[in-house]
Structures are given as C-alpha cells and as structure tokens.
Design a protein around this nucleic acid. Sequence first.
DNA 1: TAAGTAATTGACGTTAACGTAATCTATGAC
DNA 2: GTCATAGATTACGTTAACGTCAATTACTTA
Lengths: 133, 133
Amino acid sequence: MKSNSAELYSVTELAEQLGITPRAIRFYETKGLIKPQRAGTTRVYTHRDRARLQLILRGKRLGFTLANIKEYLDLYDVDPSQETQVQMLLKGITRRIGELEQQREDLETTLIELEEMRQQCVANINGKDKNKR
Amino acid sequence: MKSNSAELYSVTELAEQLGITPRAIRFYETKGLIKPQRAGTTRVYTHRDRARLQLILRGKRLGFTLANIKEYLDLYDVDPSQETQVQMLLKGITRRIGELEQQREDLETTLIELEEMRQQCVANINGKDKNKR
DNA sequence: TAAGTAATTGACGTTAACGTAATCTATGAC
DNA sequence: GTCATAGATTACGTTAACGTCAATTACTTA
C-alpha cells in the first residue's frame, strides 16, 4: 500500500515552499522533468511531484543542467522487466557515479585549500592583535 | 626564492594542454579571471597562469559561474597587511566553505541513492539470470 | 452579475559562456 | 619579397534557464 499523503499543491504554493518561481516549475514541465495532473486546465501537484522537484533542485545545486537532471530522473522510470533497459540503466548509473566521484575529489581539494587560507587569515589577524597588546 | 619554472606557453598550447579552446581562455581574460603578460600583442602564459586556469576549470566542474570563480580567485590576491581586507577575506572564505559543505551533503546523498539503484539493477539482472540456468 | 484573484499559454527579453566567422597584423620559411 | 601560419580583435550567433509582460480563461465572493 502506498503511503497516501493526500496533500495537493498549486504551482504557486509549491513554488513558495521550494523557494523558486511558478515560472521555473512550468518551465521544468516543458522540458519533461515533471508531469503533474490537471484539474481541468490547472496543474495539481502531489507529494511525489514535490519530491521530484526537490531532486531537481539538488541536481541544480550540484551544477547539473536540466537535460542532465532529466536523464537522472528518467533512471527512476525504467521498466525493471526489460532486461536491456536495465542494462542501459546500470551503465547510466555507473557513469553518473563516476562523475560525482570526480566532483567529490574537486570538492575535497577545494575545501582543504580554503581551510588553509582561513588558518592564514586567522594567524594574520592574531599576529596584528599581538602587536596591539 | 620563487621556483623559477621558465616555461612559457601560447594560448593554443595552453588550451590543448587543458582540453579547452583558445577562445575560452581569451574569454576568461575579458572577464578578469587571468591576465597574462604580452610579448608585443601576443599573450604569453606562465606556469602560474596555468595553475590559475586549472583552478578555474575545477570551479567549473563544481558548477560555479565565472563571476563566482573570480571572487574565489580574488581571494588569493588580497594584501595581507590590510586588516580590514583580511577580515573581508575571512568572511568570504567562510561563506564559500559553507556553500561547499552544502554541496558535499547533496553529493553524498545522491551517491548513496545511486549506489542503491545500482544494487537493485544488479539484483534484477541476477534474478533473471537465475531463471535461465 | 460584476469584479477581483489565480492560473494558463504564448511570445519576446535577458544573462552566461562561449562558438564561429571575418578582418587585420606580425613573423618565420623559402 | 611573398606566402603561409599564428595570434589579435571585433562582431554576430547560439544554447540554457528562466524573467517579464500580455492576453485569456476560470473561480469565487460580494
């Protein structure tokens, strides 16, 4: 049984919650990243849509393009009974893991550098402080 | 004494080495990210310029904009005798460290998800494999 | 039923980060 | 000298990711 959180959202509601604009959400839709239900013509978002949007935003924070993020999201929608599809999926996943591990390396390196710089700043400031006493 | 690696590069040389185009390098210059010497009108790059470019590329891999990367690079060029400048520098560094730590979180979360998905793929494939035997 | 509020669609505008000519200059090879 | 090459400088084109109207449509509330 699926956890039936019956909460529904409008574009603007959802946009506010996520700190983005309705325009952005609709734009993601035109790019095929989300596909909310409609009540007549009006878009209606479920909890699942919301989660999907959060994945999108996380992807953006990681510096991926929307096209890239779409690939990623599509990974969730593969039919597990199609052997070749699963094979492709596995390839895609592995590639992306590789990318992210490269990124992690860059990240750690940069963090280390910044920490060092911070130490130097602190030392510099303390040094001057000493002279004043 | 500064390690005097006397190697100099042309734009195209450097571009090839770094896997980018000369156009990109010149573009970074117009944006104030690098400022190579000139021999007459021709750009001449030193080992330091090269290192700077690598920092730029790492920044890009991390998803930062050029403006953003410029801020980062400017951190290296602060006069350590100016107390207020160092204070500002420290602030900037601290902010950026915060950003990167957020990014690291996103990264780890995504990696974990992907690993799980990979396991499911493998399990799925092995399952079908079993039936065939 | 009139009026205000919210949502949709369509079209054009904008910024970032280059790509792609086109033109011009300097220089080494022959 | 001239011819080919490399580099420089405009300048215009392009893609991504929205922003910003403008014109409709739908709903609700007095």
